[in-house]
Every structure is written in C-alpha cells, then in structure tokens.
Design a binder for these strands. Structure first.
Length: 419
DNA sequence: TCTGGGGTCCTAGGACCC
DNA sequence: TCTGGGGTCCTAGGACCC
C-alpha cells in the first residue's frame, strides 16, 4: 500500500504558523512578482478567490472580504517543508518519496491492514504537534488511488483527515462520487474532452478501454486508468530520476528594454540551470534560450535559438556565454521584454559523455564548478558568480507583501513581548 | 505605473536517410 | 488511371503538475 501525505493549503498555512493572530482568518499567497494567487486557504476559497488568477483582478474582493495577502516566501516554506519531511521520514515504516514541497508518498508495504488507519492518524497528529500544519493522509494500492483518497479527506469530515482505501468496493464507491477533473493526471483540457464523451466521474474514466485511452491522451492516460483499477504501474521514486530537460526562467518585475539586461538575466538562468545539471551529475549537449514580451500585449513577440556543445558541457561559463549569445541574436530594439529563460536539452550522465578528439578537454572545468557550487552552498547562492551575471538586486522580484524569514534569518526571528 | 508563475514530460508530424 | 516503404531524429506545441 502507498500513502500520500498532503499539507493543507500549504503556503497559506505556513504564513499562519508564526502568526497565531491569523488562525481562522483568510489568507492567500501570491506567485513570484506578486502576479497570480498560488495558494488560498478554505476561508478565502469560500469568499470566491480563484487560484492561478491574477492578483490585481482579485484585489477588490481581497480588500472587501478582509483577506490577508502575502508575497511568496519560499525560504520559509522550504524550511518548514524540510522539517515536515524529516519528521515523516523518521516515522515512516519504509521509504518516502518527496513528491513536491507539500506532498510525499510513503511506502506502507508490510504494514498489517488494521494498523494503516491508526498509523496515518499518528502521522497527522505528529505534524500538527510539531509544525502546526494540517495534513491529510490517504492510503491505497496505487499512487493514483492514494491521490483520489485525498479528496475524501477534504470533503468527509467524519474520517478526520485519514482515508484508507483497502478493498476494491471502497475505491469504487469513492470513484463514483469524485469528479473526473480531480483525478491525478487529468487536467482542464482532458476534462472537457471526457465530458464530450459522457465521462464525468473517476469511475467513468476507470471503465474506459485501453485503446480509447491511448488514442485520447497516449501512454499517460493508459497508466492513470490502470492505477484507478488498482494496478500499480507508477512506482515509488526513492531518488528522483535525472531530468531530461532543465528549465530556468522568470518574468521580470519591470519590463526590460536593453540587450545587456536580457544578457545578464539569461546568464543568471544559465548558471542556475548549470547548477541543477551538475547536481544530478549530468552534462548537456544543447541549450536554447528565449526572450518574450508580455503574453497580453497585442503585438506579442517571442524568439528563441538553440546552441549546441558537441563535446557536452556542465560548465556555467560555457552555458552562460551561449545564453548571452542567443540574447544578442534574438534581441530587438524597442520591445518591452517581460521574460527570458534558458532550457538545457540532450542531457546525459557525465560518466557516459564521449570525449571529442577535436575538442580540447578543459580539465579544470569540473574543479572550478565544484568549487563554485561548494561556496554557493555554504555561503548562500549567488556568493560566487560570473561577471556576466546580474547583481543580486538587479532583477529583484516584486515582493511587496512578504512575511519575515522567521526560520532563516537572525533579524527575522519571531519576537515575544512580555509585559 | 499598471499589473498576468514556473517547471517537466509526451507525442504528432516534419525532415531526412537509405 | 492511379499508385509509391520504413526508420530515425528533431522540435514545436500540448498537457499536466504544484
């Protein structure tokens, strides 16, 4: 059996941990640059707040309803997350897979069925006790059914946040009552297509033939259906598989009009992507970079170019030079750029990389990068960077409503006033 | 002032080769 | 009059996730 632990409205809950005055209040959390709302608690949802809709469009509602809005504080969420995951890893009977910042799968293999529910409940209690974060625990024979069980923990108060789907009739009962859009792997587009075919519930999807599923959405949907029927085909991933593609991109806080700005930003992204590449001991053979104006401008413009590295590279200097070169070639005077980004493709394990007879090997490259990564890890990212990269505050995000870094900064430690 | 996230994987279809 | 293969590589765009 596989369990799924899911933190309730995680970012919004984190904002309440050090603000007891906000417990019971409505809270939303904004994306980078205060662009869209990425997290809302049940209270703000009830007030009509929509996730992934622009903040500025919901500002009026937020003020009217007395909702507290926060810029995202990833330092805080990341720290709380890692404490939670440590606690769960220590409690878990077997391995855990950290699936996202607020979710993890737990392998419950070998646990007697009658102990699943009490165990799930004890995990939930432990996280509330130690971190003051609400968590739902759902357990089923497959990851997709465990995900489905989360729905039950949210809408059925009597199960008190813990759902165990042990027998087929239990998940069938649930699948008949859950909208197909709630199924893991079913997004907006697929929901529409399924609706046109008369499929509106998870049970309806589970009954679809493999041929139809393959035609409709390929192998991913076939797997989803197998999992809905209790056949585990999506394995636990104890260590994340190496990425086949690495992206770093970000919208600017303010529109940029100069080539040099784009180059500095693209260099940042190349360096960040390079860090991720080295972290998984890979090299890449191609890099593409792009620059775009706002999606919402009438004359939307976007251009990209690809550069290749015949011998493969994981060196931030090579990557950032390539990214800056791309910017020089796609840049157009007079445009207001909203975003640039870098993608690494053709990623292979560094140990398998072929050396090219005609390309001199830079023996020092690995050592220089290792040193750079080590310093940045120890003294904070950005402590050592390339001259081509932007200064730390150059492209500061708009984060006007950020809470203090309660857990990562001496200056931001919570203060308690004793009268 | 004037606003609109970030990241990953899959696949259909084009281009090309023999 | 009307037909004509099979495979690989590459990439843009689609779709999904949180």
């Amino acid at each position: 059996m596989i369990g799924l632990c899911d933190m309730r409205s995680f970012y919004a809950s984190c904002e309440k941990v050090f603000r007891p005055d906000l417990r019971g209040a409505s809270v939303v959390v904004l994306s980078n640059n205060d662009g869209v709302i990425v997290a809302c608690d049940p209270e703000s949802k009830a007030a009509g707040i929509k996730k992934f809709e622009p903040y500025f469009k919901q500002l009026e509602l937020i003020e009217q309803a007395g909702i507290h809005a926060f810029s995202s504080n990833y330092e805080l969420y990341g720290e709380i997350s890692s404490r939670i995951m440590d606690t769960l890893a220590a409690l878990a009977p077997n391995d855990i897979e950290i699936y996202s910042i607020d979710e993890c799968f737990i392998d419950f293999g070998g646990v007697p069925p009658e102990q699943l529910k009490p165990l799930g409940r004890s995990f939930r209690d432990a996280i509330w006790q130690e971190q003051r974060i609400r968590m739902g625990v759902s357990i089923g024979p497959t990851k997709t059914l465990a995900k489905l069980g989360q729905y039950a923990t949210k809408v059925l108060p009597k199960i008190e946040g813990v759902c165990v789907l042990e027998h087929e009739h239990q998940w069938q009962w649930l699948a008949e009552r859950v909208a197909v859009s709630e199924v893991w792997g079913v997004g907006r587009r697929l929901t529409q297509k399924l609706k046109a075919m008369g499929i509106t519930t998870a049970a309806g999807l589970a009954a679809m033939s493999e041929a139809n599923a393959r035609a409709l959405q390929g192998i991913t949907l076939v797997r989803t259906i197998q999992e809905l029927n209790g056949e585990a085909v999506i394995d636990m991933e104890l260590e994340p598989p190496p990425k086949q593609q690495i992206i770093s991109s970000r919208s600017f806080g303010q529109k940029q009009t100069h080539l040099q700005s784009l180059q500095e930003a693209a260099s940042n992204h190349a360096a960040r992507a390079g860090e991720k590449l080295r972290a998984q001991s890979s090299v890449c053979y191609r890099l593409s970079a792009w620059a775009e104006t706002s999606r919402f401008e009438t004359n939307r413009y976007s251009d990209d170019l690809c550069m290749s590295f015949p011998g493969g590279t994981a060196d931030s200097r090579t990557l950032s030079r390539a990214a800056a070169d791309v910017m020089a070639r796609v840049f157009r005077q007079g445009l207001r750029y909203a975003k640039v980004g870098v993608v690494l493709h053709d990623i292979r394990a560094a140990s398998f990389s072929q050396r090219d007879l005609l390309i001199p090997e830079n023996r020092a490259s690995g050592q220089v990068m290792q040193l750079m990564d080590g310093l940045n890890k120890r003294f904070g990212s950005g402590s050592v960077k390339l001259a081509r990269q932007a200064g730390a505050t150059r492209f500061a995000m708009r984060r006007e409503l950020k809470s203090p870094n309660y857990l990562n900064s001496w200056h931001d430690l919570p203060r308690i006033r004793v009268n």
